[in-house]
C-alpha cells in the first residue's frame, strides 16, 4: 500500500495566470503508472507539495475524465502558495491524493443545480460546472451565481462566456467593487438570490466560499423551502495530513479532510454559525 503521507512527483505542464494573484497549474504525474491509476471526483482535493517548503490542500478543478492532466487553481496567499506561483512548465512538485468526499453529482442527476460561490470559492465548483457541461442532458436547470470582491478578481472569464450561452443555464455575477463597464451586479451575490427560480423539490444547491456568505445563502434557501439535505457546502479548515490523523481540520466530531470537505447541510447544521469551531 502507498505510504499515506508521501507525495508522488508531478510535473508542471502548463501555467495559466488567471488574475493578478490567481494562477492555474496543469500537472502530470512523472510516473505514467501513477497517472494511469489516478481517479478523483469533483470536490475532492490534493495535498500539493512545494519542494523544501511544505504541503497545502487544494481542490481539483479539472474534469475527472481527463486522464492526461490535473488542474489546480491557486491563489498566492501563503508561504507554500506564493512559492507554487513561481513554478514554470517543466518544474516538479509533489502530489498526494485525492482525498475527501466530493459533490453529490450522481444524486443530483435529473434535478436542477444551483451553484453559489463567493470570494475565491469558485474553484471547487468549477469542476462541477465542467462536469455538468460535459453531461448537460443529465441535469435540469443550471444556475451559477458567483460573487467576487472586486471585478478584477473574476477568473475563468472565457469559460463563463461559453457557459452562459448554453441552453437552460443561467449565469449571475456580482462584485462588491467594480471597475468601469462591469455589466453585472455591484454588491453581494447573495442579494440576487431572490431573483432566481428554485424548484424546492428537485434542486440540489452546492455552495462554496466564506462561511458568512454560505449562512446567508442557507437562510434564503430555507425560506424558499429547500430541504437541509439538498444543500451542500464545501468546508475549509487547516489541513496537514489529509487522512484524519493530524487533528487540525476538526469541525465538531467531523474531520473536514475525510468526512468532507463537502457536507450536506444537515450534517453540519448543529454547529454551523457558531464562531470559533
Amino acid at each position: 500500500m502507498q505510504h499515506p503521507y508521501t507525495p508522488y512527483a508531478a510535473e508542471v505542464v502548463d501555467r495559466i495566470q488567471e488574475s493578478r494573484s490567481v494562477f492555474t497549474l496543469r500537472l502530470r504525474f512523472c510516473d505514467p503508472q501513477v497517472q494511469a491509476r489516478y481517479r478523483f471526483a469533483p470536490g475532492q482535493f490534493n495535498m500539493v507539495y512545494l519542494y523544501g517548503v511544505g504541503e497545502v490542500a487544494i481542490s481539483i478543478v479539472s474534469d475527472p475524465e481527463d486522464e492526461q492532466l490535473l488542474d489546480h487553481t491557486i491563489r498566492a496567499v501563503g508561504r507554500v502558495t506564493r512559492g507554487l506561483a513561481e513554478l514554470k512548465p517543466g518544474d516538479r512538485l509533489g502530489i498526494r491524493g485525492p482525498f475527501g468526499r466530493g459533490w453529490p453529482l450522481t444524486a443530483a442527476e435529473g434535478s436542477d443545480v444551483l451553484l453559489v460561490t463567493g470570494g475565491l470559492g469558485c474553484a471547487p465548483l468549477v469542476s462541477v460546472i465542467n462536469y455538468i457541461m460535459r453531461r448537460r442532458r443529465r441535469y435540469g436547470r443550471l444556475t451559477v451565481m458567483q460573487g467576487v470582491k472586486h471585478s478584477d478578481d473574476l477568473i475563468f472569464r472565457g469559460r463563463l462566456e461559453r457557459w452562459r450561452n448554453v441552453p437552460n443555464t443561467q449565469l449571475i455575477l456580482a462584485a462588491d467593487q467594480a471597475a468601469p463597464l462591469w455589466p453585472w451586479h455591484v454588491g453581494y451575490v447573495t442579494e440576487l438570490l431572490g431573483d432566481i427560480q428554485i424548484a424546492p423539490k428537485h434542486t440540489h444547491a452546492m455552495m462554496c466560499g466564506p462561511e458568512g456568505m454560505m449562512r446567508v445563502v442557507i437562510r434564503e434557501l430555507e425560506q424558499r423551502a429547500l430541504p437541509d439535505d439538498a444543500m451542500f457546502l464545501s468546508m475549509e479548515r487547516n489541513m496537514q495530513c489529509a487522512v484524519g490523523h493530524c487533528g487540525h481540520c476538526q469541525y465538531g466530531g467531523r474531520f473536514v479532510c475525510k468526512d468532507g470537505p463537502v457536507f450536506p447541510y444537515s450534517e453540519v447544521k448543529e454547529l454551523f454559525g457558531v464562531k470559533g469551531l
Binding site: Y5, G52, V53, G54, E55, Q240, C241, H245, C246, G247, H248
Partner: peptide, 10 residues
C-alpha cells in the same frame, strides 16, 4: 491527544 503538525527541514 493526537494533534500533530507537519514541518519541513531542508
Amino acid at each position: 491527544c493526537f494533534c500533530h503538525a507537519e514541518t519541513e527541514e531542508p
